[in-house]
Amino acid sequence: MSNMIIGRYVPGNSIIHRLDPRAKLILSVSFIILIFLANSWLGYLILGLFTLLAVASTKISLAIYLKGLKPVLWLIVFTIILQLFFSPAGHVYLAFGPFMITNTGIINAVYVFLRFLFIILMSTVLTLTTQPLALADALEYLMKPLLKVKFPVYELSLMLAIALRFVPTLMDETVKVMNAQRARGVDFASGSIVKRSKAIVPILIPLFVGAIQRAIDLGDAMEARGYQGGENRTKYRVLAWHRRDSLAVLIFIGVLVVLIATRFLI
C-alpha cells in the first residue's frame, strides 16, 4: 500500500493545492493531450519546463514523486525497449537478426520515455494536491452537460463521494478481520500460492457481508433523511473559481501557443 502514490493526497497550502479542482482536472487532461502534439526537442523542452514548474510549485518533496514512478517502471522500460529495437527507419547503428538500433529508434525511445515521465508527473501533481472528494466534485461539475442526455450525473458523483468516504472504514475492517483470522491460525505470509489464495476466502466473505450490511444501513439512513435522488437537491459544498485559476489556464494556453509555434519553426 505504501508505494501507491497515485491517489494519495498530501495536505499542503501551495498555489497548486489552492487551485480549483476543475481547473486542475481540465489542465491535467489537456496537458496529456498536448504532450502528443510535441514532435521536436524544443517542444519536449517546453513541456518539460512546464512540468517541472508544476511539480516545484506543489512544494512536495521530489522523493514522493519518484516513488510514484516505481510501480510503472517496468511498463516504461518495456516500451522503451520496444521503440529502441523495433524502429526500422533511419540510419542503422547496430543490427542483429530482426533487431536493429537506428537513430530514429533512439530518438523515439527518448521521446516515449519523456512522454511517460511527463504524464505520470502531471497526474501525480493532480492527485497529490487534490482531495479525492474535490476531484469528485469537479467531475460532477464537468459532467453536467450529460444531464441533457439523462445521464445520472448527481447519483454517480454521490456514489463516488460515498465510496471515497468509506475507504478508510473498509481498510480498518480489513485489518480487523485479518487479525481475527490470524488469531485463529491463518498464516498469510507463508505456504504455497494455492494455500495463500485460499486464505483470502475467510477475509473476503466477512468483508462482503459487512459491506452489504453497511450499504443497507446507509440506504435506510439516507432515505430517512429525505434523500430522493439527484434532482431538486441543493449543494452545501461549492467550488469557487478564483483569479489564480484563470491565470493557470492562461499560462497553459501560452504553453500551447509556443508549442504549436515550434511545429512551424523547426
Binding site: L164, R165, D217, R233, K235, V238
Partner: peptide, 26 residues
C-alpha cells in the same frame, strides 16, 4: 451504528445532507 449513517465526507457535509435533500438555499 454510528459509522453506517455518516453520509458526508466531513462533519459539516454530513449535517448538511438532510438540508440538501430538502432543497434548502446554500
Amino acid at each position: 451504528n454510528p459509522e453506517n449513517q455518516f453520509v458526508g465526507a466531513t462533519v459539516a457535509d454530513d449535517v448538511a445532507f438532510g438540508l440538501e435533500n430538502r432543497g434548502i438555499d446554500r
